[in-house]
Amino acid sequence: MRAELIELTTPLSRDYRAVVRLIVGGIAESLDFAFDEVDDLQLAVERLLAEAGQTGSVNISFELGPRSVRTRVGPLRERTIADALQGPPPAPGELNLRRILEAVVDSYGVEDAADGAIYVRLEKVREAR
């Protein structure tokens, strides 16, 4: 079974968002994701980074399965990210990070790290064709 790992460290500054998007797009493309699936994964990572502030850096790893990619992003120190993802579900019609991730990835999870930081895991599976 294919399980390859790609890792990168990037500054959180928005100047690097386009680079991250390209990398995410390239990884998703290598798994033959459809246009909307590529876009979904890019959006998930982009929104996560947007919530993480603009100072410091973050590690992003991609574990490639036969038709899925598991993305792990962290350490993230903005408490609001964990609150949004681990707190009560958003009210109907309310738009927050959790609702966005629920719409664009197949599953997500939060891991606690040192110093109160967290890692967020995102899984995106290619639809069968």
């Binding site: 493309e29 033959d32 459809a34 246009f35 909307d36 590529v38 064709r129």
Partner: peptide
Amino acid sequence: GRSPSIAEI
């Protein structure tokens, strides 16, 4: 009948 892949585009 579905969203195309990047390779198809």
